[in-house]
Nucleic acid binder design. Structure first.
Lengths: 157, 157
DNA sequence: TAATTAATAATAATGGTTCTCAATTTTAAA
DNA sequence: TTTAAAATTGAGAACCATTATTATTAATTA
């Protein structure tokens, strides 16, 4: 992949270039444009560690460019989901949170019901048996989500 | 368990008696009351097959007792979740759906992303490795949710 | 350049859920 | 009983995350 990107934003680092290219490609195919707003939002999202809610991202984005409205953040996050860079999770209170998908190792979630901490894990055998279940039911697997709810070690004390 | 229940509603059948006792017990402990409204809502929920949204339940409830308001349905469904008779799922559009928990064999979900069909399945080894993951991270397992998204056999044609 | 198309910020609208409140019912106490 | 306290209700208002609308601006194309 050729990455000839004008490094006009001080926030872009090497590891983001590929993601920016992915968004660019997706936008081009959809006859959409990579605007400064969209790029800023992608950058902030990529820098954000963990599961991001729109409100969290919006606060950071406003520091960087106070003219960007929250509707644009929503619109752009939906684009990031469409092009496969982000995944949307629905929280129990009704909002959504977004996590990075590209260049992230696949993982599932352990969620503490007391302190809401999220621990990511991976188990190859669980993955394997998921495939088995899909085959048995004639499903073509696209994605999965596994959430284990419990009490974390800190909250047990 | 002693089940001496006045069978005043024609909708109660034997298999519901235990659930009604569970709700009763929970309400008693919480110093709350088993009202006719709450019982009607529980009955309709227990008769409902599959994942129920409040709006679905409300339509059926209104046929049975048009005076029951939707706020009461919401309040009661939250009670059913608290006492362990129901589980709440958050749908991607933001609403909630409820599924029965008591006397239901545990199962996970295969969800078709085209037609939204939900197929329930169970895999003992997946359960086993979940426990293993919890132990490894010091979590006390309370509950889990596994959703596999894909294209069902009918939608592949 | 002009014409077309896309994107934006601000704001209004949406819709599922919860809250408020006055009225009613149930329970417990006197 | 009678009375007081507590719980529950339906109706509708409020909430709030998200989406749609709109007038305006920016980018692209002819």
């Amino acid at each position: 992949m050729v990455l000839n990107f004008k490094r006009e934003s001080q926030h872009i680092n090497i590891s983001m270039l590929e993601e920016i290219e992915i968004l660019k490609g997706f936008l081009r195919e959809s006859k959409l444009r990579l605007t400064p707003q969209r790029q800023t939002i992608l950058e902030v999202f990529l820098e954000y560690d963990g599961h991001a809610e729109v409100e969290d991202l919006f606060l950071i984005i406003q520091e960087r460019d106070p003219t960007i409205g929250i509707a644009t953040v929503y619109r752009t996050m939906n684009l990031l989901v469409e092009c496969g860079l982000a995944r949307e999770n629905v929280l129990s209170q009704g909002q959504k949170s977004f996590e990075k998908l590209y260049h992230q190792s696949h993982h599932d979630h352990l969620i503490c019901t007391q302190c809401n901490k999220i621990v990511e894990f991976e188990h190859p055998l669980i993955e394997k048996y998921q495939l088995e279940v899909c085959r048995a039911h004639g499903f073509t697997l696209r994605q999965h989500k596994m959430e284990i709810y419990g009490i974390c070690i800190d909250c047990q004390k």
